[in-house]
Design a protein around this nucleic acid. Structure first.
Lengths: 123, 123
DNA sequence: CTTCTTGTATCGTTGATCTGACACAAATAT
DNA sequence: ATATTTGTGTCAGATCAACGATACAAGAAG
């Protein structure tokens, strides 16, 4: 589980966690049926209260991405499917990331480049 | 000024504003020397309190991106330079965005594709 | 100089969130 | 059947941010 809470980020911890988990599901890092850590364990690992993790799990369950059962843990919902992205765009994205890494650019630089390109209005 | 506050986002409004303004500076939408709206005016436009905009301005000034003077308004600092991004990456990003738009993909789809590519560990 | 604009600072109130702790319910493991 | 695991719910206290309002300070404009 590559998730962590940034204490310097004013975004509430439960929201940081919710977004990271959702990104993991979208990226396929957590396939359908995969089990997530128990609330108490993840809370201890992240250094937050159990209620904080519980809220992130609950909101993702309300949105249909997770399924929770008492005693059975929390798992990625079977119907959880990544959002529709044209395969050609995905391929270009992978090429861009690979090239960026060859040039020594990190994730932040890649996102900055994308943000700049998106800021230019289409002609 | 293409900025807006999302009431459904738990991120504090002052932080949403700070990030959007910083993104504008990075993207060149606000060149060095450009004047930002007065605090009260922007607050009224966004539907937030003046103190909220003031905090976003102040944090960006502390970080060196803006310069504020009483009576003179708030402007983009002369030394404000976009973060270092290899030109080749910027070019690839523009090509990707252009292609994505031709395919009907929106900004969210582009970011999702980038996130997925970034999630794949380098070989 | 006088007036207007603009940023800065403070106050009290309200609402949201985090925390630590505890009890309860349901599924699993032995 | 019993014990353990795990999710759910509640509570009081603490912290933080937003709000509306007000006052003040410094530069600009007339």
């Amino acid at each position: 589980m590559h998730v962590r809470i940034d204490d310097g980020d004013p975004t509430p911890p439960y929201e940081q966690l919710r977004r990271q988990l959702l990104a993991l599901v979208h990226a396929g890092g957590l396939p359908a049926g995969a089990r997530l850590p128990p609330i108490r364990q993840l809370a201890a690992d992240l250094g937050v209260a159990a209620g904080t993790v519980a809220r992130a799990y609950r909101e993702l369950e309300d949105a249909g991405w997770l399924v929770s059962r008492r005693g059975g843990g929390t798992r990625v919902a079977e119907g959880a499917v990544a959002p529709q992205v044209p395969p050609a765009v995905l391929t270009l994205a992978e090429e861009l990331v690979q090239r960026a890494r060859e040039l020594g650019a990190d994730a932040a630089a890649v996102r900055a480049a994308i943000d700049r390109a998106l800021a230019r209005p289409e002609p």
